[in-house]
């Protein structure tokens, strides 16, 4: 019994070492330089956004490597995850291969990961400490002393209990920036899934009522920046390990789309501006710009839409790629 336990431990250590070796060999020794243009101001809130990551394959590893590399010049403190954190299983081996090992340099560097649940995630993932979900399917957190609060939702199961929680949390937030993230996109130009309108019907009125500024989602395996909807900036970041090439269809929703490569986002909030830069697995900038927050928004009883993102060039900045 004891011997077989030792054998299991040895096998696991060996497979972990092998994976690290593959990771090291698969990546070029020196990555192409990333041209990071965010303001990179001291004291700002800096974070990264990844989605649909849990494959454990070379694409996930390539994005993980780029993330690690970008942190040298853009020292983000945490990463938000858009769900589908573990594809194909949730054994201890899956957690290692699809999360702990790819992001080991970041975890070792003290970066915190905040996960949300996708349709490929077992809700028991909420008990995994490194996902920082505190055992909850939906939760909120506030990084440091900044007036920013994040709300991680479980879009797989948006029942009235969760909606009530969201309403209460947003009402009590008091933060200038209210950022929601979850798996299914309420707006999307994707041909495989498209906009999740039933989800949108439930959450959008709450977002509008309390002046949610930005929403990050995944599920669609591409990057898309949606034109601001009812004053809210929407981003889809679901290609950090999976890709559906050519899946962005023509739609009026798209401000910028990229479905030709794997991506992740770097985001910085300073004052009333949120800067974003989306990079590919080769370190190329796919999209960049900023979202400007317009004043403080108070809830109104009639749930009237109040713009929190300035219209007409609010999401300004260069765009490259597709």
């Amino acid at each position: 019994m004891h011997r077989s336990f030792q054998a299991v431990i040895m096998r696991r250590s060996f497979s972990s070492a092998l994976l690290l070796l593959v990771l090291a060999l698969a990546m070029p020794a020196a990555l192409p330089a990333q041209n990071l243009t965010l303001p990179m101001r001291q004291g700002s809130v800096k974070f990264a956004v990844i989605g649909d990551t849990g494959t454990g394959d070379n694409h996930q590893l390539a994005i993980a490597k780029q993330l690690t590399s970008s942190r040298a010049t853009f020292p983000f403190d945490f990463v938000i995850m858009m769900g589908d954190n573990l594809y194909g299983g949730n054994s201890a081996k899956d957690y290692d291969k699809k999360f702990a090992l790819p992001y080991k340099p970041l975890l070792d560097g003290g970066v915190k990961f905040y996960a949300s649940l996708g349709n490929h995630d077992d809700p028991s993932e909420r008990f995994y400490k490194l996902f920082n979900m505190n055992g909850e399917r939906y939760y909120s957190f506030k990084p440091g002393n900044a007036s920013v609060r994040f709300f991680a939702l479980d879009s797989n199961y948006m029942d009235d209990k969760q909606l009530k929680w969201l309403d209460d949390q947003l009402a009590a937030s008091g933060s200038d920036w209210k950022i929601c993230f979850f798996h299914h996109p309420p707006y999307s130009s994707g041909e495989a899934h498209g906009s999740d309108t039933t989800l949108r019907d439930q959450v959008e009125p709450v977002f509008v009522k309390y002046g949610v500024n930005v929403v990050f989602t995944g599920h669609e395996h591409f990057y898309e920046r949606i034109k601001p909807q009812k004053g809210i900036a929407y981003f889809i970041a679901g290609s950090s390990a999976k890709l559906r090439e050519g899946n962005i269809g023509s739609s009026d929703l798209e401000a910028k789309g990229f479905d030709q490569g794997y991506t992740f986002m770097l985001v910085e909030i300073t004052g009333d501006d949120m800067y974003y830069q989306t990079l590919s697995e080769t370190g190329k900038t796919i999209d960049s710009g900023s979202v400007h927050r317009v004043g403080k928004v108070e809830p109104t009883p009639n749930r009237t839409a109040q713009p929190v993102v300035a219209t007409g060039g609010a999401t300004k900045g260069q765009t490259t790629g597709k």
């Binding site: 349709n119 490929h120 995630d121 809700p123 797989n156 199961y157 029942d159 039933t198 989800l199 439930q202």
Partner: peptide, 8 residues
């Protein structure tokens, strides 16, 4: 996968 149960 765990199919999403639509909110409605």
């Amino acid at each position: 996968p765990l199919p999403t149960t639509p909110p409605n």
